[in-house]
Amino acid sequence: MINTGVNKEFNMSAGIEKNPSKKSFKLSPYLYIGPHLILFTIFFLFPTLYGIYISFTNWDLIGAPEFVGFANYQEILFNQDSTFYDQLRTGLGNTFKFVLFTVPACIIVPLLLAAGLNAKPKGLKFFQALFYMPTLFSVSAVMIIFSMLFSVSFGPINHYLSVDTNWLATQPYSWIALVTVTVWWTIGANMIIYQAALNGISKDLYEAASIDGANSFQRFFRITLPSIRAQILYTVVITTISQFNVYGQPLMLTKGGPTSSTTVLLMYIQENAFGTGISIAGIGAAMAVILGLCIMVVSAIQFIFLRQRD
């Protein structure tokens, strides 16, 4: 009360400390990233590392995994008498076939659609919405629809083409059906990406080329393609990754047939680990690691992409 000077000083320092005291209330940055990091560790990082470990073990998903070194890999890669060797050969082979058949189609078809849309015809918005729409549907719904469309006896495709092709159980029709369905279902995203890219190409380039006498073929290969090179590369990468994970289409449309000719590796992985009977999770995990390595090669390219943007 008497010594006002001290009081003043005290008040002043209190005033200065107002900010630091508030700062002690501030949540640590780790509390912001914590919830995600916890989920990330439990449900992504740990199971990924554990999945690699499991591939070196004998495991039935219930007891403790028993370490067996490279035995699983030895079995599926080199033991020609093993059913798992056959499974890997068939499954990985069919997965690669699927990637090889679908990726080019899933680049070229949306590119053509985007080029068509880029001419700004009547009904642009409607066309765009229609081609994108199936992307929003689930694989199981789409496969039910197409299994009925391709049905031998009551399918409209056979009826209107006046044929009795067994689309889903004879080759090469099963592959044709799978590729058709996949294109119908998945090209939406790529189309929109190309559309945006094509929109960005300067009209002057085309006009200059026309004046120089370039025909539309030359214009496409000399101007259009080089201008959207980055988008093409990006879509090839993401499309390839997603097609390597193919599962639902052959499972529900062709049931992996005829005679395992469309059974993909993920179907064998699922069957070995979670199918009926005792789980052979170790073998399943080894197959998953091999499939994963194939995907990783492609993903590495995607990573470089995203880092460039960062």
Partner: peptide, 18 residues
């Protein structure tokens, strides 16, 4: 970001276990 390269198929079996 780097872990985005890890393919999800590898963690499928252990994730079920967890």
């Amino acid at each position: 970001m780097a872990t985005m390269m890890f393919p999800a198929v590898v963690n499928l079996i252990p994730l079920y276990n967890i």
